[in-house]
Every structure is written in structure tokens, then in C-alpha cells.
């Protein structure tokens, strides 16, 4: 076997983390994207900027502040302790919280874009036909913004798989709990075991490429079919 048990454990953990984060991000990100796309509040720009911050911030900044915030004197640490949940640092759920921040723009922005592209018209029509807000969301927004939601899910998942800096800083490298694939690769490289690093690194490269390729092929088809239907 080329991959050791520790490698397989890291792969399993990474997939579990990315799936958990993607589901939570779709639940949290869709209403947020909806609000950002539709609001005319002055808060739109500052909230939009906050959501986009992880795109430009080095993960070390996010990781460092998360580590401080999760500490016994930090706001997150005090919150989780008062709820009797213990500390988030060095735990799977700590990584989930960190990844939600880190991957937020990758989920919010595609959904926001597709809701904005949809415009207000379909919703107004649905409203005149008597659909309530929740009904409108599920029967109009979700089907029309489907492309954006799928893109968001794929990017959120792939980005969490590729996360490294934040995990390194708040994870503590615990096997089966916080030692994800990128950290395992880093450890192999640091230990100068390049052979073992290559298998995992190449696997990750191929996976990431195929994920993006699938996404772009899907988007390309969608755009063409949209163009056809508008043309026809």
C-alpha cells in the first residue's frame, strides 16, 4: 500500500471537515448572500467587505486571531466555556469554525452574484401571484440561482480541502481530529520524506484540477444553454 493508515486517516478527516463546512456554509451563506444581493442598507458595503476579507488576508492573520479568540481569555473561548462546551482550539469543531470564516467568500459571492443577475422581476411576479417570502425563496430563488449555489458548494468544498494556514495555527496536529491532508503533506515534507509527500500532494493536485474542470465544464454548458434559450 502506498498510503499509510495515517495518510488515509488524514484523507478521511479532510473529507469530513470539508463536507461539514460546505453544508453549514450553504445554510449560513445563502441567507447572507440573499440579504447582500437585495438590501439597500448602508451596511451592505461594510458587511460585503467583511465577507470578502479572507480573500486578501493571509491565513496566518485569521489563524492567529482565532487562536487568541479561542483562548481562555478570548471572546470565543469565554463563550464556549460559559456554554459548557470547553475550548474550540485543537478540536474538529474549532477547525469547522475557522474554515467557515476562511471559505465564506467562496460560498457567499457566487450565490450573491446569481441572485443579483436574476433581478427583482421574477420575485415581483411571484409576489403578484400570491407567493409569500418563504415560498418565493424556494420556488423562485433556489431554482433560478441553482448555478450559483452549485458553484458555491464546489468552491467552498474545494477551498476547505486546500486549507492549510488556519488549520496549522489552531489545529495542534492531532491525528484523526485536526491533522488534515495539507498538514500531513507538510509534515512529510518537513521530515524530508518526499516520496510520501509526493503521493498525497499529487493526489490533491489531480483532485483539485478535476473538481475545477468539472465545475467549468458545467458552467460553460449552462451558459450556452442559457444563451440558446434567450435566443430562442
Amino acid at each position: 500500500m502506498i498510503l499509510t493508515d495515517a495518510d488515509l486517516q488524514a484523507i478521511g478527516l479532510t473529507l469530513r471537515l470539508a463536507s461539514t463546512v460546505t453544508v453549514l456554509l450553504l445554510l449560513l451563506g445563502t441567507p447572507l448572500a440573499w440579504w447582500l444581493a437585495r438590501t439597500s442598507s448602508w451596511l451592505k458595503a461594510p458587511i460585503g467587505a467583511l465577507v470578502a476579507l479572507p480573500l486578501v488576508l493571509p491565513p496566518t492573520v485569521l489563524g492567529f486571531y482565532l487562536l487568541v479568540a479561542m483562548g481562555p481569555n478570548g471572546p470565543l473561548g469565554q463563550l464556549t466555556q460559559s456554554l459548557g462546551l470547553g475550548s474550540l482550539a485543537f478540536s474538529f469543531w474549532g477547525l469547522v469554525v475557522g474554515s467557515i470564516f476562511y471559505s465564506l467568500p467562496f460560498v457567499v459571492q457566487p450565490i450573491q452574484n446569481s441572485i443579483e443577475a436574476m433581478g427583482a422581476r421574477p420575485l415581483e411576479i411571484a409576489a403578484t401571484l400570491g407567493a409569500g417570502p418563504i415560498d418565493r425563496f424556494f420556488t423562485v430563488v433556489v431554482p433560478l440561482a441553482k448555478g450559483g449555489i452549485i458553484t458555491a458548494a464546489v468552491l467552498g468544498f474545494a477551498h476547505t480541502i486546500g486549507e492549510f494556514g488556519v488549520v496549522l495555527m489552531i489545529g495542534g496536529n492531532i491525528p484523526g481530529e485536526t491533522r488534515v491532508l495539507s498538514v500531513q503533506i507538510y509534515d512529510h515534507v518537513e521530515a524530508l520524506e518526499y516520496g510520501r509527500a509526493h503521493w498525497l500532494a499529487a493526489g490533491m493536485l489531480v483532485f483539485s484540477f478535476l473538481t475545477l474542470l468539472t465545475l467549468y465544464v458545467f458552467q460553460g454548458r449552462k451558459r450556452r444553454s442559457n444563451a440558446l434559450s434567450f435566443g430562442g
Binding site: L67, V68, M70, G71, P72, N73, G74, G77, S87, A89, F90, L168, M169, G172
Partner: peptide
Amino acid sequence: QTYQFVESGN
């Protein structure tokens, strides 16, 4: 990094 884990109280 080990120092950082202890210093932050985590």
C-alpha cells in the same frame, strides 16, 4: 508554534 499554543492559554 508550541510556545504560541501555551502563551495564548489554549
